[in-house]
Nucleic acid binder design. Sequence first.
DNA 1: CCCCGTTGTGCAACTTGTTGCATAACGGGG
DNA 2: CCCCGTTATGCAACAAGTTGCACAACGGGG
Lengths: 182, 182
Amino acid sequence: MSLPHAILTALLEKPSSGLELTRRFDRSIGYFWSATHQQIYRELGKLEEARLIRALPSSQPARGRRKEYEVLPAGRSELAGWVGRTEDPKPIRDALLLRMRAAAVVGTEGLDAELRRHLDLHRRQLAEYEDIEKRHFPPERDAAEDRLRHVVLRGGIELERFWIGWLTEALGELERLPPAPR
Amino acid sequence: MSLPHAILTALLEKPSSGLELTRRFDRSIGYFWSATHQQIYRELGKLEEARLIRALPSSQPARGRRKEYEVLPAGRSELAGWVGRTEDPKPIRDALLLRMRAAAVVGTEGLDAELRRHLDLHRRQLAEYEDIEKRHFPPERDAAEDRLRHVVLRGGIELERFWIGWLTEALGELERLPPAPR
DNA sequence: CCCCGTTGTGCAACTTGTTGCATAACGGGG
DNA sequence: CCCCGTTATGCAACAAGTTGCACAACGGGG
């Protein structure tokens, strides 16, 4: 259950409204913990009720009215505690690997196109990450906390490289296969 | 929605009962599409109702009584169609990357231990994969369909290597950090 | 001044996945 | 022959994530 902690992190970096958070989840934070606006609004409600965050007094409560939140001390310590908490890595659940395995049984028809499409998507994502890296983390200018963020970004970068490599390999294997497999 | 297709694949490879499937999901198939016995039983029920699979006649229906399933032709074509279907890659949602990012804001306390623990887990998993590779895919003996399965396994292997690399890098960064970050 | 597109918040219903537990059949040891 | 551990199936309640839509405020153009 990490969504609340993702939100706390985002709000600590900068107090925001729900929609603003949603946008930021479409960019930086969401690169490793995605969430829809629905999840975010619901969770903001819960966090407020739990007194981990509060709405800035300036924003009076009314539907359709912008409402900005900030993290309370209780929220910060909750997050600090969570950082060191133990949680097993989630087992992989990837549809593409599954498709590949299924293809070994019922034939590969249509799979190559999908692999190529993903390859393209991952290349774009990689390009975007590398762009961010260039802009946010110029060589040897990292302050202590920036270096942690940089490591996270490099994780994203290397993950994309992994996919590009695997997809390329998989496509090669598909082509090398007998023309009409089943 | 890939669980039904994971089950169809598994059943095509070998007709099985619910528990047997569960065990196989703890090993091979589950390495890239995990599922609990609950999900599996529920899904078997749905698939049977949809006439994509059927219980083998030998196994009479009774609670606590072993019930073996096989895939019907309709199931096989459903799976074949699914293989080439289009589906965007799911955005990453990884708690460890998130923790790292949170650590940049509230401090890294306890994070290093968790990273080391994961590093160990990933090393074990890698060793297991490499063992499977050695046993199931000896060099230059791959038949056509084995090669696809082999590519899938190599995906798992390289993914583990990615994590090991990243965790090592991240740990290095943590150590290099000022001793009392906040 | 009012209409309409944009910004922003939110409810409700649904799907998927998790957890805890209940229950039935089977087989071997006392 | 009956007790109990193992094998096997399953219900129910919950938690998390997704989708579709409703509705309020705001601001600019006609």
